[in-house]
Every structure is written in C-alpha cells, then in structure tokens.
Design a protein around this nucleic acid. Structure first.
Length: 686
DNA sequence: GCCCCCGCCACGCGT
DNA sequence: TGGCGGGGGC
C-alpha cells in the first residue's frame, strides 16, 4: 500500500490514526466518521511495515464486525490472513481457555452455556437447594449471578441465593461447562495468577486494537490492559482503542464508557485523535441526531460535521396502529424501489425490540418484499436446532447435563421423570454428572435393583449404547464407504438414527406444515455445516470447532447474502451498520425510551438510563445516509390488549424545520407520478 | 410410571 | 406466540 493511496483516501486525522502504530492511541470516532476504514487501513499499514500478522490482535464487539474487518483487510492487502487474530473478546477468551484447559482444571471439549442453558442450570440448582418456586424470575436471577461473577454486584440481603450460586458453579464444573461470563473471568484470573502464561501472550500479541471501546466492560478493559502491559520508558504498549461515548448502548450488559476516561488515566502518554468528519449522512440527518444527543450531559466534546449539505427532510408518520405502521413501511419501500431506484438492500428497518419485527415481517410477506431479519430469537435457539445441537454436545462432552437432560427423552424413549429423579439422586450423592450415573448403573448392573421395573434400566442402557456409537462415528473420523469423513454426513446419520422426522410428525400431528418447516430448519442447519466444512480456510472441520463456533454466534447472520433484501433488525443489532434509507418503527413513549428503563430510572433515581435510551435513538438516526422515516403508532396491541400510545419524547428534540409530517395518502399524488408508477409496474411484470 | 392436554404467564437490548 | 408446570388419563 503506497503513501499515495493512503493520503488520497483518508483525511488528515484519519491518516494520523492509521500511521500512529506505536504506543497507546485513543481514537474518538464520531458516528459515520470512517472508523472501520481507519482500523482496516491501520492493520494493512502495520503489515506493510513488516509487523507479522501473528503479532496483531484486533478485538471487536460482534462476530459480524470481526468477519467484516478480516475481509476488508484481505481485500486491501490481497493477502491470506492465516495468522491474524480478529475476534470478539469472548472468542478470544475461549481461545485462551482452550489453549490452557489442563492448567485451568477443565477437561477437553467443554460445553459453552448460553443464556437459556444457564437458566436451565440455575433452575436445577434452585431445585437442588429446595428453593425452587415458579415465582422466581429466572431471567433476573441469571442477570444477578452474572453481576456477582463479574464483580458488578455483591451479595446483599438475598444472601440465601448464595447457596444456589455455589450449586450453579459446582454444576458448571461437574458438567465441564462454561457460561459466557466465564469466557472473560477465567482468562483474566489465569493472567493474574500465572505470570508466565501472561508473558507468553504478551510476547505474541504486541499490537492490540479494540473496536467499539465504549461498549467494553470493565472486565474486558482489564483483560486488554493486562495483555498490553503498562507504560514503560520505551514509550508504552502498542494498544489502540477506538470508540464513541455517544454510541454507548450496552451498559446493561456491563459496558462502561468510562473506560475511555480510565484509558486516559492508565496511559498518560497516549496519543488522542478525534475523527469528526461524518462521511455518511446528510446535514439534515446529522442535525437531527445532534439535536437529540445534545440533551445528554457529561459528553466528551466533539464537533461532528458533514460536507453533504441539505438532504431530504425527515418524514414522520403517526399510523393508527401497528398494522397501519407495517403497511406504511411496506408501501414506502415499494415506492422507494420503483420510483427512486433504491435497492431492497439499501433499506434498514430498525425497531427497539425484537417482537416489533413481527408485524412488519407480515406486511413484507404480503407485499412480496424480500427481507432478512437479524437478531431476535436466533436460528440456533429454535427447539429443533437446540435438540440436534444438544445431541452433538453430548457426543463431544457427555457430562453436559443441560444438554443430556434435554435429549434423554427427546424423541420419547420411555425415560421419564421418575427415572431421571433416580439418576439425579445418584448424581448429587456422588457429585458426578447424569452421564456418570448412567455409566455407573450400566457397569455395576445395579440398574434392576434401583428401578421398579427393569424397563427403565434397559432404556438407559440402549440410550448409552447409542451415544457411544455416535461418539465413534463423530470423533474417530474414519472414512466411510471410501468417502472422507464429513461432519455434515455424521449429523445426517444422527438425525436419521433418532428418527427426528417421525418425532416432529407426532408432535405436530395437527399441523404437518409446521413439522415440515421445522425439519427444513434442520436441513438448513446441515447445509450450514456443509458450507463451513467446504471452506478452504477452515483447517479443522471437526465437531468441536463447529460447536465452539455456533455457541458464540447467537445472532444469526449466516452467510452474507443480503443482496436484494430489506434489513429488519433491532437498533442494537444495527450498531456499526449504515443504510441509504432507514425506517425507525415504534418511536413511541414506552418503547423509545423503553418503559423498563424509565422504571430503572425511577428506582435508581439516577439520570442515566434515559441517557442511554437517548444514545440508542441517536445510534438509530445516524444509521441513515440519505433518507430517514420515523413512525409512531397511535395505538399498539401489546400483551393481547390495545394500548394508547404517545410519541417518543425524543422526537421533540429533533429541530422542527427538519421534519415533514406524513399524511396518510399515497405518494402517487399527481397524474404524472401515477403514470410513472404504472409504467414501472408493467416493466416489472413483463 | 409415563404422557397428554390444558391453562397460565411473559414479552428489552445480546456475547 | 410459546414455554412450562400441574393434574388426570392410560
């Protein structure tokens, strides 16, 4: 990459950010200021200077961002990126744990528990402690446990939950499982307690970069700081963080934008660079965004400006209800495509919650608008996919109780509640997993004595034999019928063996369509494996790498075939993305800001939750390049009843002169427009 | 002892 | 819309 290219494609501060590769660097990058561009050019520049790929560690917030960054560096340098490490903090933590599992006291092939698995285990722990009640909010308890684990909360008056937490923790250990918090706390403890290990990683990763720094947690910050090392006479560690305090929207997950202040304190010799030129949006959109965000206090000073003078006004519409809203959005999209030549993939529809996407999806289906939903109940959370994944996890790690209990009687094989209760008794008495108990029963031939009928014992034996059989198939990786071993083929065999299709048919005897739909999801899952194992860059297409991969990808971004599809997603999921046209749906009081955050605000008596909601709205606005539509329904169906809504108070913070109010009329108002429309329609259908 | 069906509840963002 | 627990049927 020549100097010429660098200076012609980057502005002055960007150039400085790219060229400053030594020492600590703090980049404050406003929305749309070419942040991703700077990071990728910076990596390319480092490689150009002869820094080996393996010495660079780039930490991102989502898998998607990591993938995009890698692709862009590849395009820029036209080189293979085999030893460049670009990943999320969690993926990096997993890598560190995998490389040191023996030292950490874990067995190979541990399972990673997502939020659902975690809640299942907490429920089990509550039962074990005789404290289970359906009234307990598992979700809240799970979040509380997270805060305890990551040091954000201390045991207070509900110290009786401490025994449940201990039970949960010992459960994880017995089942050879880790939760998401462990992926950060364990590497951190490892680095803190084993200096030799830390030094090894410090030697390897001499250049560290952190994207979306405002959304890193204190834990992640400490991890980065440890890896970077402290400042020394030679000019300090080579760590570069990039962030924007105005786009901090993950504080509920432990993110703390004060990390930016902490970085300034911890690295006094840092070089600070501000990227303030916005390349994305028109001034109309930028002025609206600035109007909103200026109501927040305690911001880092910045002056975001755009050379794209003017632009189309922001269109505001108050539909009667959520159906009218969805219809309006679908109509507008059709018109944007036909009349203004936008592509479907130029359009992003953003909502505060996942559930709001539903109505909009229906309208898209009705009007034949191709779309793609990202986020939400992920593909991997669907029951049928979780079932198959649980089988795979049991094959990789039989001690994984959450997965074992999920599939031990799915499809039904006559192992019911009583049998499982007996197994539980053996397990908790001996502090072993359920699988351990089954093995003990089978080998001691005591099964017949333990159960009233030997039928249960026999069923357990058959089940264990099946699992053992699959272990051979999946883990020994022998070629079959002269063909090389393939994971996808093994999964096919597994799905056949358990006859999942018959199970689906019997479960949905009244709804064959549903059964077929679910089975097609499994087929899609298998095709995903095929796609993944045929990637030449994939050096180990085995069961364990696949499981690791899918446990960290909760958001279903699948293959990147967004071509020709409208993007439907939450505002959170839209972070880091941009679209020529953006719709913000459900801009109502109670949604933006969300009523739960208003509640939080009242409880804590702190002026912080509302500020974060405002930042969220700011992020939503700044995703737009040319056109922005905002809808706020007058009534909305929620929890089976219709609720009167009022517009989001944030709408008042947008300067009035930037807005036009949409009447409920077709934009094909003039005869000329109508003719144009008809002509276009003819063209399309011919 | 296992399974099926019914009624109840909840639904903020996601690694 | 679905997930889950409890009670009754087999």
């Amino acid at each position: 990459m020549s100097k010429l290219i660098l200076s012609s494609e980057l502005n002055e501060p960007q150039l400085k950010a790219v060229r400053t590769i030594e020492g600590p660097v703090l980049i404050i990058a406003g929305a749309g200021s070419g942040k991703t561009r700077v990071i990728t050019y910076r990596i390319a520049h480092m490689l150009d200077k002869g820094i080996p790929q393996s010495a660079i560690l780039a930490l991102t917030f989502t898998n998607k961002a990591a993938r995009e960054m890698e692709t862009r560096v590849k395009e820029l340098t036209r080189k293979k990126m085999q030893s460049l490490t670009v990943c999320t903090f969690h993926a990096f933590g997993l890598k560190v744990i995998s490389e040191n599992y023996e030292l950490l006291g874990y067995r190979k092939n541990f399972s990673i528990y997502d939020e659902t698995d975690k809640m299942t285990l907490i429920k089990e722990s509550l039962r074990e402690c005789k404290m289970f009640s359906p009234k307990i909010n598992l979700y809240e308890l799970s979040q509380y446990f997270s805060k305890i684990k990551t040091g954000l909360a201390k045991w207070t008056d509900d110290a009786n939950m401490q025994s449940v937490y201990d039970e949960y923790q010992s459960g994880l250990k017995i089942y050879n499982a880790l939760d998401f918090d462990d992926l950060l706390t364990i590497p951190l403890a490892l680095f803190e307690n084993h200096d030799d290990v830390l030094q090894k990683y410090r030697q390897k990763y001499k250049y560290i970069m952190v994207d979306e720094f405002q959304d890193t947690s204190f834990l992640q910050y400490r991890l980065m700081k440890l890896l970077a090392g402290s400042e020394n006479a030679k000019g300090g560690p080579h760590c570069c963080v990039v962030g924007d305090d105005d786009q901090s929207i993950y504080s509920w997950r432990g993110a703390n934008y004060e990390n930016i202040l902490m970085f300034e304190q911890d690295f006094p010799s840092r070089i600070e660079i501000k990227l303030e030129q916005n390349y994305r949006s028109t001034t109309t959109i930028l002025d609206a965004a600035n109007g909103v965000i200026s109501h927040n206090t305690g911001r880092k000073e910045k002056n975001l400006w755009s050379p794209k003078e003017g632009g189309k006004p922001i269109e505001l519409f108050y539909p009667e209800n959520e159906r009218a809203e969805a219809g309006f959005i679908a109509d507008q999209i059709t018109q944007l495509k036909i009349m203004e030549g936008f592509n479907y993939h130029d359009i992003g529809v953003l909502t505060r919650t996942n559930s709001l996407a539903h109505n909009i999806e229906e309208a898209f289906l009705a009007e034949n608008i191709p779309y793609r939903v990202s986020g939400g109940t992920s593909f991997f959370q669907r029951k049928e996919i979780k079932d198959i994944t649980s089988y795979l996890r049991i094959i990789a790690n039989s001690d994984d109780d959450v997965s074992l209990l999920r599939i031990i009687n799915t499809p039904r094989r006559g192992i019911g509640k009583t049998t499982i209760a007996s197994l539980n008794e053996i397990s908790s008495k001996n502090k072993i997993s359920t699988w351990g108990s089954i093995m003990r029963l089978n080998y001691s031939r005591a099964g017949g004595q333990l159960f009233h009928d030997s039928k249960s014992a026999t069923e357990l034996e058959i089940f264990a034999e099946k699992i053992e059989g699959w272990k051979t198939l999946f883990l020994e990786r022998k070629s079959q019928d002269g063909k090389p071993w393939r994971l996808s083929q093994c999964v096919r065999t597994l799905v056949d063996d358990i006859d999942y299709w018959s199970y689906l048919v019997s479960e949905h005897s009244k709804d064959e369509k549903k059964a077929r739909w679910k089975f097609s999801n499994i087929e899609y899952f298998i095709r995903m494996i095929e796609y993944w194992e045929s990637d030449p860059d994939n050096l180990d297409a085995g069961l364990y790498p696949w499981l690791n991969r899918i446990s960290l990808i909760t958001r279903d971004d699948g293959e990147d075939d967004n071509e020709g599809k409208v993007n439907l997603m939450t505002i959170h999921a839209a972070k880091g993305l941009e679209f020529p046209v953006v719709f913000i749906a459900g801009a109502e009081d109670g949604l933006i800001p969300h009523e739960k955050s208003i509640l939080e605000e009242e409880e804590n008596n702190e002026y912080s939750s509302i500020q974060e909601e405002r930042r969220l709205f700011y992020v939503a606005i700044t995703r737009a390049r040319e056109k922005l539509f905002i809808t706020s329904a007058q009534k909305r169906r929620y929890l089976q009843s219709e609720k009167e809504c009022s517009p989001s108070p944030f709408l008042d913070e947008i300067p009035k002169e930037l807005i036009i109010y949409h009447e409920k009329k077709s934009s094909i108002a003039t005869e000329e427009e109508a003719e144009k429309y008809i002509a276009k329609m003819r063209e399309m259908f011919n």
